[in-house]
Computed example of a mutant assay.
Amino acid sequence: ITKFLLAQQCKLIAVPCNTASAAALDGLREQFPDVPFVGIEPAVKPGARATQSGKVGVLATEGTFGSERYAALMERFAANVDVIENSCAGLVDLIEAGKANSDESLRLLRPILHSMLTQGVDTFVLGCTHYPFARNTIRRIVGQEVIIIDPAPAIARQIQAVLQQHDLLSIGDSAQISATTTGDMANFLKQIETLIGAELDNPVQPIIMSL
């Protein structure tokens, strides 16, 4: 996938998935030392700083929870807080089916989040980049006083900073949105339109994987 993106003249590659970043980011940087990469990790540090109760809820995938990168974050930044974890199994599938803020998502999330609230959690970290799409449902359950930390703005700021650092930042409003996928193109296009409400400037292109 990285070789395909570089062939499309991408000047920076973001890996906006906690699980993928944990599994592949170090190897990608080693294999492509001249390419700027931006990864992501669960916002444990800002979560630990934000909590007043000393209890932080982290919503992420099992792959993220089981990674060495996550363990290192916990050791560095969460020593003085209690972290309560849940993978919200099934939520990714609902989001990809266009049901991020549906009754199904509400039924799935309500017992999970209520349990965390009962344990004193006052700050939730959305540790999977799918989960911000369900933010409205999460907010509906936890109320307005609870802090929800979405990683997306930090990723955008880091991408801008890295582009500036490498003198690669474009000037002007000429950006276009293109998309490629290793999966079903029609389904992927529907997901894009549903989740981000944007139309692509170019047709979805397939990535042909050769093993």
Rank of each mutant, 00 (worst) to 15 (best):
E104N: 08
I148W: 03
V56W: 04
P153G: 13
D201R: 03
P206V: 00
V15I: 14
A60C: 12
Q176T: 15
T180F: 02
P111I: 04
K99F: 02
R29S: 10
D93V: 10
S21Y: 02
R76T: 10
P16R: 06
V162R: 03
R110Q: 12
V92G: 05
E96F: 10
V162G: 00
Q164G: 05
F4W: 06
Q52W: 03
I95G: 11
L163V: 04
V38A: 00
S170F: 09
M185R: 14
S53G: 10
P46E: 14
V204W: 05
G127A: 06
P111G: 09
T182K: 12
N101E: 06
A72L: 14
L168C: 03
P46C: 13
A78S: 13
H166D: 07
I112M: 03
A154M: 10
K3R: 15
C17H: 04
Y70I: 09
T180K: 02
P36S: 08
A22H: 09
L168W: 04
P33Q: 11
M74T: 11
I148T: 08
H114T: 15
T123K: 00
V81I: 14
P206C: 04
A24G: 02
S178G: 05
A156R: 04
V35N: 00
L25V: 11
A71P: 09
D93R: 13
A48P: 10
G90Q: 02
I141C: 01
Y70P: 12
C17P: 01
V44K: 10
G197R: 06
S87I: 08
L169F: 07
V35M: 09
P206R: 02
A156K: 07
V121N: 00
M74Q: 15
L28W: 12
A89L: 03
E68N: 11
A7P: 08
N202T: 07
